[in-house]
Design a protein around this nucleic acid. Sequence first.
DNA 1: TCGATTGATGTTAGTTCATAACAAGTTATC
DNA 2: GATAACTTGTTATGAACTAACATCAATCGA
Lengths: 195, 195
Amino acid sequence: MAHWHERKKERTRNALREAAFRLFAEHGYEETTVARIAAEAGVSHMTFFRYFPSKEDVVLHDDYDPMLEELVRAQPSGKPPLRRVRDAVMSAMPTVYEQEREVLLIRSRLLLTTPPLRSRMAESLSGSQTAFERGLSDPAEAEAPPLASRVVASACVAALTTAITAWVEEGGTGYLPGLMEQAFDALETPGARDG
Amino acid sequence: MAHWHERKKERTRNALREAAFRLFAEHGYEETTVARIAAEAGVSHMTFFRYFPSKEDVVLHDDYDPMLEELVRAQPSGKPPLRRVRDAVMSAMPTVYEQEREVLLIRSRLLLTTPPLRSRMAESLSGSQTAFERGLSDPAEAEAPPLASRVVASACVAALTTAITAWVEEGGTGYLPGLMEQAFDALETPGARDG
DNA sequence: TCGATTGATGTTAGTTCATAACAAGTTATC
DNA sequence: GATAACTTGTTATGAACTAACATCAATCGA
């Protein structure tokens, strides 16, 4: 039960992920086979599947959701739900952006431009939606969140996704947190004019 | 070039779709192989792929989007964008619901409960989002829709999806257009209380 | 120190989705 | 009635993924 295993596992896990991203960048996602990734990381293709349930999961994994839930819950419950989510996200966004801008851009681009990944992204987003829903609802109640909370949560996820998409489309030149503010503005001002 | 072909093609297409849905209902989606569907429809598995690009597409296909775009465009441009989409959708929904309730329920349930389909549903939804965006923007302008329109479109899709999900979860007992109205309400009243 | 156990890994073989190349049948057209 | 166009079947292939079993290294008990 030593920590020996843990470190070794972590190392091969990282080796696999790094090999995968490098090969995806060089030859594209679909052109890169799992066998090739495994070979590059010095393991067999079976080992790959022991670390990641599918090829897509190498890219898909992301662990912001628990943090988001907490941030939303920490917001004063007097605020309207949409505001709680907005303020929660925007309180953390500038820091995250500053620290992980590069990785975020590469990963988002890969996710948005690769059809099979784009598909499975929905699952990842539904995780964020659930996080928002839980953050909005009272942990004491065991019931499923009311429709209104779920709508707000899904709309926020949609707005944020749209902001990230726009950011990626312009090559990551803009200031992502700013785009997110604009997106929330569009959501909160029902009287906005269209172009 | 006779119509002969058309009818024959339409027939095998329907045979494939019907066989697929029947087998999905009987044995589940993942347990049903393409070869089995083809055999049941009396053709080879290659023929299946000549009619549907993938197994998932048998379920995924839906052609409401062009109608939605037109309905949104027909709305007075003086209304706020979110209202235009809402009124457009709700003007058609009751009729659609009355005529296709059963099919809608079965298909939605299959879509929401089958992981691989749930994934690819995102693509279908992105089609609806584009329809809303186009309906909201002036056809004269060649530019990409502004962020605000895209956010509104994506939020509406999210709200509608949430309504359908809730409807499926309660077994289709509720009145779907009513749930959709509730969803839009939650989107338009930023001061709503949570439960 | 030795042997048993545990857990990670490799090997091999198989299933399924999906695509491609080519052959064969059927219909339309001249 | 023969040929061209289209549809379908056959066969082969590639890649994702799974399962069964063998193997190897590290740990623990004696």
